[in-house]
């Protein structure tokens, strides 16, 4: 496969790639720290994955196999659009199979299947600052990160517990990385947070509009914030997948009629299809 000759391989010019690559290396060296970078305007809108796309473009080579998911699915429109973009500008092979991919760009989910050392997971990040709801000023949050002053976040979570009996944050649930940096895991459901802990794959995060890159190296401690008397508990719908029967995967709720009818199906389409296929094989 070859790439569109009107553009440089993987779209970005080499100066831009070098700048992003330098930022990526520093991000890996300082796990969880947001490294500012000179994000470029991409031919896709800000907020639609431009950060993830720039990271992927800086990483991707012709031998890579790329998987792109949005909400866990390969066939959601934005995932399709991004996959087509890389197919055009880098000519790389693409796959929907988690196990076959060397680079996985994701929005809002971590695949159910455990990732390996041979894989890189690239997250699209709309808002890299975990403290932004409590303190919108970057000048101030930078200072808080410098001092590891995260009391504000603990207070917020504790107020949740006092008011609701438990923490009300359901996604973008903040984590401590390597015991030093408070980090936004991107808007993945809290259910996915434990997968980040000591993951064998390298995790890279790109926020294009906010112009930040951060990373979690393999086998790095990622702890969801909690309290001794209120330990972190990931939640999923208390149901099984209507298609593959999974009782452990993260489920999407599908409304089937206007009389309260609903069903649950896996959000990770590759996981679900693989399970369905193996069930059919078992049945045959």
């Amino acid at each position: 496969m070859s790439h569109d000759p009107a553009y440089n391989f993987a779209y970005l010019d080499e100066n831009t790639k070098r700048m992003i690559r330098r930022a990526l290396l520093k991000a890996v060296a300082i796990p969880g720290h947001q490294v500012p970078f000179g994000a470029r305007e991409m031919p896709l809108p800000y907020g639609w994955g431009t950060g993830g796309i720039q990271v992927t473009a800086a990483v991707l080579g012709p031998r890579d196999v790329l998987k792109v998911i949005d909400q866990g699915a390969d066939d959601t429109t934005n995932a399709v659009s991004i996959r087509r973009f890389f197919n055009r500008v880098a000519g790389v092979g693409t796959t929907t199979r988690t196990a076959e991919a060397t680079v996985i760009q994701t929005r809002h989910r971590i695949p159910e299947q455990a990732l390996t050392e041979a894989q890189i997971l690239v997250y699209q990040v709309p808002m890299p600052e975990p403290l932004f709801r409590l303190e919108p000023r970057l000048a101030e949050t930078r200072r808080m990160h410098a001092l590891a002053d995260y009391g504000l976040m603990h207070v917020k979570l504790y107020e949740d517990i006092a008011r609701h009996g438990h923490i009300s944050t359901a996604y973008s649930y903040p984590v401590m990385v390597g015991g030093r940096y408070l980090m936004s895991p991107s808007p993945i459901p809290a259910f996915d947070n434990p997968k980040m802990h000591r993951m064998p794959a390298l995790q890279l995060f790109g926020a294009g509009r906010e112009k930040r890159i951060y990373a979690v190296p393999p086998y790095t401690e990622v702890r969801s914030l909690d309290f001794e008397d209120h330990p972190f508990r990931p939640h999923r719908a208390d149901a099984h997948c209507a298609l593959c029967g999974s009782r452990s995967s993260y489920l999407d709720e599908v409304v089937t009629d206007d009389r309260g009818g609903r069903m649950f199906v896996c959000s990770d389409t590759d996981y679900c299809e693989t399970r369905q296929a193996s069930r059919q094989e078992d049945a045959a």
Binding site: P45, Y46, G47, W48, T50, D70, Q71, G72, T76, T77, N78, R107, H108, R109, P126, A170, Y171, S172, P187, I188, P189, A190, F191, R209, H235, A237, Y250, L251, D252, E253, S267
Partner: peptide
Amino acid sequence: TGFVEHLKLPHYVDFQS
């Protein structure tokens, strides 16, 4: 415009949580 309009992308995983 990108960030405001990105709200129309699927968010059903977050909404489910």
